[in-house]
Design a protein around this nucleic acid. Structure first.
Lengths: 205, 205
DNA sequence: GTTTTTACCGACCAAGTGGTCTGTCATAAG
DNA sequence: CTTATGACAGACCACTTGGTCGGTAAAAAC
């Protein structure tokens, strides 16, 4: 029992540090030794707990990235308030953590999709699954918004979802290095403008 | 004289193939040998023409990427027609080449910014310069649009530029693998929606 | 108390990596 | 014709990579 706890603790430490370094330096550009050095652990420890570097990463995706996405981007947009407000607030918060250079979901994912695209189909599948989950939940939120009378019934829910996701992933790349805070402000302001244009018109039915 | 021509031709071949592979597999994940193998050239040839891998890449950025950006994203939005139409058409074309998996500018840049961020400040400087050039030209186009009465004078030109650039870079990442053509269509449709919301209102002034 | 299992160590390996260096051969200059 | 030079070849080097494997010590199981 105690052994199992220790095992979990060590694996968790490795995964957290692993994600941090993979995110900062990229997967292929981060060696297992880099991670191990950070934790003062040895190769033996690593291969005792994980089959391979790839297996290690997949577990990080499933344990850390998926959970982060749920807490940051999915749970906040559930509920029956105005979907557009929920999404706006959600992005506001997510981008704020991004400004402080913490691990937010968008850039992490954008990063890795870039990196693995065309190279590692196995990992790409996992990453695409995550995107898909986000998309599905966004579409659902938008359809709730239509149903509840907040969003114009004529808009294409999937289109809005794709557009909004693109914008979010894009701004995260764009916030790198240059005045992230100012860019966040400008971005959010235009997002609101866009949302205003798809909200339910008073005169419509 | 003839020697110089041959030199230029070989360097050009190396750069074109280099960009192709760097784009497909990433900079750090593409070895010089990979490029050389593709061209049936030797290490000697490479280091005869370029100082280092980094120097090689910087030259690719300056010779190929910058030029591609001008022809794809800057020249098409110059002129005094409706800026929003110009940008729309420009994106339509750029994304169409993207659908066919050719080298379009947006993803190439997004890719590399992701890859070099935090790792190679020297190269990041070059990449950020390119983004800046694009941004400046977009802002200029939007301001022309205001001046010519196509765009609502109250909108924040820089905000629109940031938003539009984000969306473009984002959709390019998002078009990877999953139904790029359908996503392009949905994206463009929402972009038009957004543009409609910032165009000059008939009743204004 | 002995045996088995678990967590971890670290030397080692083969396969690459960016980069160097000597050599060769065609062309151009003298 | 001789000489110098530029374009390329490819063996080589130091180093890093992901991964292996025999060992050790402590805790669990018996």
């Amino acid at each position: 029992m105690d052994k199992n706890l220790k095992r979990m603790a060590t694996m968790q430490r490795m995964q957290v540090t692993g994600l941090e370094l993979f995110y900062k330096k990229g997967y292929y550009n981060t060696s297992i030794d880099d991670i191990l050095k950070e934790l003062s652990l040895s190769k033996g420890a690593f291969y005792h707990h994980f089959e391979s570097k790839e297996d290690f990463f997949v577990q990080i995706v499933q344990n850390l990235i998926v959970r982060k996405m749920y807490t940051m981007l999915i749970e906040p947009i559930e509920g029956h308030d105005n979907s557009l407000d929920l999404i706006t607030n959600c992005f506001e918060n997510a981008l704020e953590t991004a400004v402080h250079n913490e691990l937010d979901f968008g850039f992490v994912l954008g990063n890795f999709i870039n990196e693995f695209n065309g190279k590692n189909p196995e990992i790409m599948k996992h990453l695409n699954d995550i995107l898909k989950i986000w998309e599905v939940n966004l579409v659902a939120a938008i359809q709730r918004g239509k149903f509840n009378g907040y969003i114009d019934r004529h808009v294409d829910s999937e289109g809005v979802a794709v557009f909004v996701m693109s914008a979010y992933i894009g701004i995260r790349i764009f916030m790198v290095e240059n005045a992230p805070s100012a860019r966040k402000y400008r971005f959010m302001s235009q997002l609101r403008q866009y949302f205003k244009s798809i909200q339910a018109k008073p005169e419509t039915v």
